Simulated scan of single mutants.
Amino acid sequence: MKTTFALAVLSCIALSGCQSSTTIISPPESSLQSYISNLSCDASYQCKVIGVGERAACGGPSKYLVFSTKSLDEETVERLAAEETAKERILNERNEIQDSCKQVLPIQSLCVKNACQSFPIGN
């Protein structure tokens, strides 16, 4: 009986030790959109814009995305954006996509009501 109880206690201690270890969660591959989904901010300087993708016909990014540096690592965002751009470039080369070279307007970002939001730059 004492042996069974001791085993149960040791098992609980061992399992709880595994749960209390600190784990750094890195973003999964190709998950830029989900990685930048937390747009919380305290001020506009935390809101950034990054160009992602590559337009086959005329170059330049295929889209612009807003993200917040309040809780995200900017270098990780840049790395994920570069990976997504490289994948899109390869797809463009393989598939010889006929792109109409439509204009993709740049955006600016501002912190409004504690969330980064995008606004078109321009006309």
Rank of each mutant, 00 (worst) to 15 (best):
Val112Met: 14
Asp99Trp: 03
Ala82Cys: 03
Cys116Ile: 07
Ala86Tyr: 10
Ala56Thr: 04
Ala8Ser: 14
Met1His: 09
Val49Asn: 09
Ala14Glu: 00
Ser16Lys: 05
Ser71Lys: 10
Pro28Val: 13
Asn95Thr: 09
Ser109Val: 06
Ser44Trp: 02
Glu75Cys: 04
Val9His: 01
Ser109Leu: 10
Leu10Gln: 05
Ala6Ser: 07
Glu88Ser: 07
Glu78Thr: 06
Ser20Asn: 12
Cys18Ile: 09
Cys101His: 02
Phe5Ala: 14
Glu83Met: 07
Glu74Ala: 13
Gln98Thr: 12
Phe119Gly: 03
Gly60Ile: 01
Glu88Thr: 10
Gln117Trp: 08
Glu75Trp: 03
Ala57Gln: 04
Lys48Phe: 03
Arg89Met: 02
Lys87Gln: 02
Ala56Arg: 05
Lys113Tyr: 06
Arg55Ala: 08
Asp42Phe: 04
Thr85Asp: 00
Ile50Asp: 03
Gly60Lys: 00
Cys111Ala: 11
Lys102Pro: 04
Gly122Gln: 13
Leu65Lys: 12
Gly17Ile: 06
Ala6Trp: 01
Asn95Gly: 01
Ser21Thr: 09
Glu78Val: 05
Ser34Val: 07
Gly17Cys: 09
Val66Ala: 03
Lys2Cys: 00
Gln98Asp: 13
Phe119Lys: 15
Cys47Ile: 13
Leu39Glu: 10
Tyr64Lys: 09
Glu83Asn: 10
Gly59Pro: 01
Ser44Ile: 11
